[in-house]
């Protein structure tokens, strides 16, 4: 089956991202396809490169990044939600005249159309959030 995943909450405060990570790993292990993982609302904060969690804790942005690299996953951060919350890639940094960017490797910033497309193209769209 082809899954689309939506993550609506940021890392650590909420378990949504952890649950989604476990779900995606299990789905891949069972041979399912992940069409796209879309990060919305505070979920965009899962793409930050600036988090420094304690050493004995998980680093969710890095875990997503590694999982994406290993499995060729499409991790998309909503541009409108990201701009509000200070999540920028290099292009967005330049476009808005900011002096730094903070998107972890493996994530990309794009529009809400990517969420709708995931709904159209996936057999199931699964939301992790509040």
């Amino acid at each position: 089956m082809k899954f689309g995943i939506v993550i609506n909450e940021g890392p650590y405060t909420h378990q949504a991202s952890d649950s989604a990570l476990q779900f995606v790993k299990s789905a891949l292990a069972k041979g399912h396809e992940i069409f796209r993982i879309f990060f919305y609302h505070d979920g965009v904060n899962n793409g930050t490169s600036l988090g420094v969690p304690p050493q004995d804790d998980r680093n969710l942005p890095n875990e997503w990044s590694e999982l994406a690299e290993k499995n060729g996953l499409d991790l998309v951060v909503c541009v409108a939600a990201a701009q509000r919350r200070g999540m920028l890639d290099e292009d967005e940094m330049k476009r808005h005249g900011k002096d730094s960017n903070n998107l972890v490797k493996g994530f990309r910033i794009s529009g809400l159309g990517q969420l709708i497309e995931a709904g159209i193209q996936s057999d199931r769209l699964v939301t992790f959030g509040d």
């Binding site: 409108a80 809400l112 159309g113 709708i116 497309e117 159209i120």
Partner: peptide, 19 residues
């Protein structure tokens, strides 16, 4: 919370997709 506003933003984009 921001959910209502950001839901509306999704709906306005979605309207362009002929669904």
């Amino acid at each position: 919370t921001i959910y209502a506003l950001e839901s509306l933003e999704v709906v306005l984009i979605a309207a362009a997709f002929d669904q």
